[in-house]
């Protein structure tokens, strides 16, 4: 019962933040509502027993990445969004297509509700750092090392792109 109430509350906060991201015209308001979405997603991760992922969701996503976004918005002194027509194909095909996709996924999930079963608040040692670290540094060691190279390339790319030319 408590689990359901918590899920509904944080799920509604999540969806409200995402809708607010779309409705707001100033990018800084959108960025702050995205922080709300990420923080409530971290709480939903806690409900699913993923403690480590919830922690890095707050630290990396809501912390580092969103600070980067807010920093760029303030650096560029971005004003309110201009209203322009945009792409007509995106409106005519994209919006109904996405609506159909969302309804289809929802319908399939609700129909298969019985087979999927339920989620209870997991045992305490499920999503802790220790088992994740064992998995990450043993079975996923090669992908982990490759991501470090990816990060290095991304840092160099960001420096080169951000450098003022000439």
């Amino acid at each position: 019962m408590v689990h359901q109430v918590l899920f509904i509350v944080f799920g509604l906060i999540c969806v409200a933040g995402a809708v607010n991201l779309l409705v707001q015209r100033h990018p800084i308001n959108s960025a702050l509502s995205l922080v709300v979405v990420m923080a409530s997603l971290a709480l939903i991760y806690l409900l699913l027993g993923a403690e480590f992922v919830a922690a890095i969701q707050v630290i990396v996503y809501a912390g580092a990445i969103m600070v980067l976004f807010v920093f760029v918005i303030m650096l560029l002194n971005a004003g309110s969004e201009e209203r322009s027509s945009g792409s007509r194909i995106a409106l005519l095909l994209g919006v109904p297509g996405v609506l159909v996709l969302g309804c289809l996924i929802g319908w399939i999930m609700i129909n298969n509700n019985k087979q999927l079963g339920g989620v209870s608040i997991a045992a305490t040692d499920f999503g802790e750092t220790h088992p994740i670290a064992r998995l990450l540094f043993r079975d996923f060691l090669l992908p982990f090392e490759i991501t470090s190279i990816l990060i290095l390339i991304a840092i160099m790319g960001a420096v080169v792109l951000g450098k003022r030319e000439g």
Binding site: G11, A18, V98, L101, G102, G106, M109, G118, V119
Partner: peptide, 22 residues
């Protein structure tokens, strides 16, 4: 909580993201 609720929430967030992108 049924697993499908989480997946439906995920689908809603994804569709809102695509709407924003478009």
């Amino acid at each position: 909580v049924p697993l499908s609720w989480y997946l439906v929430l995920s689908a809603i967030l994804f569709c809102l993201g695509v709407f924003g992108f478009l």
